[in-house]
């Protein structure tokens, strides 16, 4: 088994990497915050969050703040474990 096996394909994109990084250090983030931080378009960000949601790496909560719909994202324990493994793999590959 090579080291590359620990590199998670689900995180192999700058936006997804960014989403996971933000959710690792914040309890949650809403759509607007992710958009501001990552400088992504609505459609682009939505497709990446959907991909991470499908893997069960992030949890999506839709709610209303007053009358405005608000989408909140948080990392699942599975997502956090997977991302930690991914970071460790990256670090090992760099040190090689």
């Amino acid at each position: 088994m090579s080291l590359i096996d620990n590199i998670n394909k689900a995180f192999d994109h700058r936006i997804r990497l960014g989403i996971m990084s933000i959710l690792m250090v914040n309890d949650y983030a809403d759509f607007k915050m992710l958009k501001e931080m990552l400088g992504a378009t609505d459609g682009n960000l939505a497709s990446h969050t959907k991909a991470l949601e499908k893997e069960d790496y992030i949890k999506v909560e839709k709610q209303f703040i007053g009358r405005k719909p608000n989408t909140r994202y948080s990392a699942t324990p599975l997502g956090k474990a997977a991302f930690t493994k991914h970071i460790n793999a990256l670090e090992k590959l760099i040190r090689k």
Binding site: S21, I22, V25, L93
Partner: peptide, 17 residues
Amino acid sequence: KYLEDISEIKNMMSRSS
């Protein structure tokens, strides 16, 4: 690329918090 990824992760973690 891996190096870039790591620095992007660090950057996002500190900038978002």
